[in-house]
Design a protein around this nucleic acid. Structure first.
Lengths: 332, 332
DNA sequence: ATTAATAATGCAACCGTTTGCCTTACAAAT
DNA sequence: ATTTGTAAGGCAAACGGTTGCATTATTAAT
């Protein structure tokens, strides 16, 4: 049996309510009593039972984090771990815990959310991916449960979200390549299902357009977020035409592209990845990559959610996190 | 306001206790009443409040997962993510949630644990690394709080743990290399602080001994778990003597080794990593690596912990998870 | 018809907090 | 001396469940 507020009360010769008020530093308790109670708490090594507190407060000070079920490979992507770091750091600072769950597959996702929300375990939820017509978002909106998403949702106005400016990030990359004299630029992205793919593709198209280059559908691929799929896509693309640069939506994809290129002995194709993973810098040649600042994305997601939960006035419902192209040998 | 057990009771014209007994499928309730209550639950879309339930049951059905604070690079190691997958899967199957925390640094770790245990948020705790003389383990033992560690603890008898047989895993690797004719085999490991480094080193030494090869301290390095540290260590080692094989305790380390070797134009040195990361197979040359089955480690850790919490009789307090050397070009 | 046994359900206390309101004690004002 | 005001702290209900025990209804046994 652990020590409760009553034990402290007995020890300090006051009522439980007084102890509670000392904990919250209520001004109705005299300094003398406060001292006495605090001493008792220290002697007994008292720590409040957060479960009991949650029950009365109707708040658990816990954030739910849902990792996507489909595309298990996403877990190999350091993005999630880094985002979790950011979330965890900010949450810890604000006294929140993180409850972590994963869905087994797409259909399961709403089920998992439903349990999480229904059980009243969490004060708010962080979604780490966004799809077109996202069922999870729809569900949380319907249940009016606080949440935030990492990625740009359909409804940019009412949902709370953080994201990079993916259009601009890719636009800048492609524009830079064009300025460097590249004309035939291929695009190999992950599944179109994810919004992030879509926006990066838009940035790609925009850069071509502004520079008066006609997009060539044979140079555009959207497959899975795997090294293998990218490898295959590249081989297919090359069969049609070898571009003078290839942009991708993920380092893992870039790795596949590079492998295909090297295998064919093709050397002068520029290559750019996303997420700036540790490995990209050690590749031969090292691969330029866009750093999306995943940890910062996580931090601001947590911030947005906690503010929302605590009804802190906010001037915005979203944050755009800066990206940065790290240039390496693959674009030299 | 969400729907409570009382709402269901009213709707079904029974008392709250009856509803509670229907939920737990208590045999004292007649089938007819059960049906009626279940119908009411369905109509009202009732979901039990787990906080309230936790308070009476003195069990939260939540597992605490502590990620190490020091060596942030560990987070770049897919081991943790994979282990989390395994933990999460098993926990989900058994109806447990995962509360996820990290320490900011080594000293912080006990502090974090103390809060977690004291607040009574979690029924048990999973530690993902083990050190010599581990403070966290000592603390949890002192508090008599259920926990399990991934890695072999000092006290193998009383602590619950899962691990690979790291001595054997490395022994097999080195023995194989020797059988292939290698004689000067270097060892580059992560920080000695972690037990895993120690055991793999022991396996290395054992294999040398059994094959009557004298260990050469100039061929043994223990640095950080980073690519960079490994790169430096390799350069240093080569300056002294170029071995004909190098074994490492992590793929990330192997990557650093490979980079140093390639840079010096050294080609015929065998190389082995640990953890079988996705990238190792795409390196040039591809790197042989020991698959430690991190997901399985996580699953069994969760299993051991949940059994312990639920007082399920167990025949063992630990599991040894099999490892497997995946041979690639770097050992051909 | 009365009693005993059993089945089905309700009552109320409890888990460890928080908080609205009441009580007490004392000082100041009339 | 009585009223009024204020400061300090206690009482008890509430949060949403669970569970030991009591109660009632029903059936079986005498």
């Amino acid at each position: 049996m652990s020590v409760t507020i009553k034990d402290v009360a007995n020890r300090a010769n006051v009522s439980p309510s007084t102890v509670s008020r000392v904990i919250s530093n209520n001004s109705r308790i005299s300094d003398a009593t406060k001292e006495r109670v605090r001493a008792a708490m220290a002697e007994l090594n008292y720590q409040p039972n957060l479960i009991a507190r949650s029950l009365t407060n109707k708040s658990t000070k816990t954030l739910g984090l849902l990792l996507p079920g489909s595309k298990a490979d996403l877990l190999l992507n350091p993005f999630f771990v880094q985002a979790m770091r950011g979330i965890s750091s900010y949450a810890k600072e604000k006294g929140y815990y993180i409850l972590f769950t994963h869905a087994d597959n797409d259909e399961d996702e709403v089920e998992v959310l439903s349990n999480l929300v229904g059980s009243q375990w969490v004060d708010g939820i962080i979604l780490t991916t966004v799809k077109d017509n996202d069922k999870s978002i729809a569900f949380l909106q319907y249940r009016k449960h606080p949440f935030v998403v990492i990625g740009k949702p359909d409804d940019e106005k009412i949902t709370y979200w953080v994201d990079n400016d993916n259009i601009k990030a890719m636009y800048d990359v492609v524009d830079l390549l064009i300025k460097k004299g590249k004309k035939n630029i291929g695009f190999i992205g992950g599944s179109h299902e994810f919004k992030v793919t879509k926006y990066r593709l838009l940035g790609y198209l925009k850069a071509l357009k502004i520079n008066n280059i006609k997009a060539d559908l044979n140079l555009i691929y959207e497959k899975d977020y795997t090294e293998e799929a990218a490898y295959e896509a590249t081989k297919e693309m090359i069969e049609y035409q070898t571009p003078d640069a290839i942009v991708t939506t993920d380092d893992l994809i870039a790795f596949g592209v590079q492998r295909a290129l090297l295998e064919q002995g093709i050397e002068d194709v520029s290559l750019v990845g996303f997420n700036n993973t540790v490995i990209s810098q050690y590749k031969k040649p090292s691969i330029s990559s866009v750093d999306i600042n995943a940890e910062k994305l996580g931090m601001f997601a947590a911030k947005l959610l906690i503010n929302q939960i605590e009804d802190t006035p906010m001037e915005t419902n979203n944050y755009i996190i800066d990206t940065k192209l790290i240039e390496r040998d693959s674009t030299k």
